[in-house]
Design a protein around this nucleic acid. Structure first.
Length: 328
DNA sequence: TACACGTGGTC
DNA sequence: TGACCAAGTGT
């Protein structure tokens, strides 16, 4: 692939790029890092308002490092993949401790939550290094342009194609193209600046590149969440720091099992995780179980920082209390 | 390498 | 409506 195609893509990007809030702070490693972590496996539409809120509340990495864990986890609630938030906290404190962000890909890579993609993205975008960030968009666009069915062949092809001195812009141009025209399904090759340079388009089968991943079956599980009221309050707990929804606020309850729960539930909320689905049976109970927890006013549930599973389960329970006949 | 790890949007 | 998918990382 020649430099002309790369130049065409950069021109197209310059002409069409959206005014995303983190683009204005591209040379600010804090803003670049924060946006890249939030964008891991999460859409631009979801991230945009959350990024603004984070930046308003914690304008610098020092401010974020000084914040309480529960405040940061609460602000992350609903964004998913909560290990990202736990790593965000650890990373902010490591950076504040050393005084500033490291400025090379290899040093960035050592920080918690910065894997191969994010370290390369921050190095390229914030520090102008010729690092090669390969996310799912870059992978797909490069696989199509070069006609690579095998994803393992993509990084080398990408590295050869990225124009020297423009890696940050080029990565964003590829990601933007992947999100807009070069989509997984029904790509708009007719509007793509790279159509004439694209092997997959020439073959007439852009969707065949890269080869689809093999999908796995999702098991179904059941669990119990206790619904414990005291006046206009409900008993909440904090989940263990590790594992699923680690460190997040929650309704108390036991382990999730594959066996159906034989209990009389106030509500049953079905929730889909990445690797299994869950029927959470919300069951009334009088006394809190042993252990730490707190009474959360029902009028201040938004401030509890509940992940979506529990936010929806609480909504279902409240609805069922209001309209017992309509309860499932 | 393969799996755990959330959620919301799209078709 | 269920499958697919998203600016991936850690183990």
């Amino acid at each position: 692939m020649d430099a002309t195609a790369a130049a065409k893509l950069l021109d197209h990007y310059q002409a069409t790029a959206r005014d995303l809030p983190w683009r204005r702070g591209e040379r600010d490693p804090y803003r670049t890092w924060l946006s890249e972590v939030m964008l891991q496996q999460t859409t631009v539409a979801t991230v945009t308002p959350r990024f603004r809120r984070f930046l308003e509340r914690w304008p610098t990495v020092e401010a974020l490092a000084a914040a309480k864990d529960e405040d940061i986890l609460g602000e992350w609630a609903g964004l998913g993949y909560y290990a990202r938030a736990r790593n965000l906290i650890a990373c902010a404190r490591a950076v504040a401790e050393r005084g500033s962000f490291p400025e090379t890909e290899s040093e960035l890579r050592k920080l918690p939550g910065l894997g191969a993609y994010t370290a390369a993205a921050v190095a390229a975008i914030a520090f102008g290094e010729d690092a090669v960030p390969v996310d799912t968009n870059v992978e797909r666009v490069v696989a199509r342009v070069f006609g690579l069915a095998n994803r393992a062949d993509v990084p080398a092809a990408a590295k050869a194609w990225f124009p020297t001195g423009r890696h940050g812009d080029f990565a964003q141009a590829l990601m933007d193209l992947g999100a807009s025209l070069c989509r997984p399904k029904k790509p708009e090759c007719g509007r793509c600046p790279l159509e004439a340079d694209c092997r997959a388009a020439a073959l007439g089968k852009p969707e065949a590149f890269p080869a689809p991943k093999v999908k796995k079956e999702r098991p179904h599980r059941h669990g119990v969440a206790w619904w414990i009221r005291r006046g206009d309050e409900v008993w909440l707990v904090r989940r263990p720091a590790e594992g699923l929804l680690g460190g997040m606020a929650a309704l108390p309850g036991g382990e999730w099992d594959e066996a159906p729960a034989m209990v009389n539930a106030l509500a049953i909320h079905r929730h889909g995780f990445t690797h299994f689905t869950l029927d959470l049976h919300v069951v009334p109970r009088v006394e809190p179980p042993p252990g730490e927890g707190w009474w959360q006013p029902l009028g201040e549930l938004d401030r509890a920082g509940l992940p979506t599973l529990y936010r929806r389960a609480v909504e279902a329970a409240l609805k069922s209390e209001r309209e017992p006949r309509l309860a499932d």
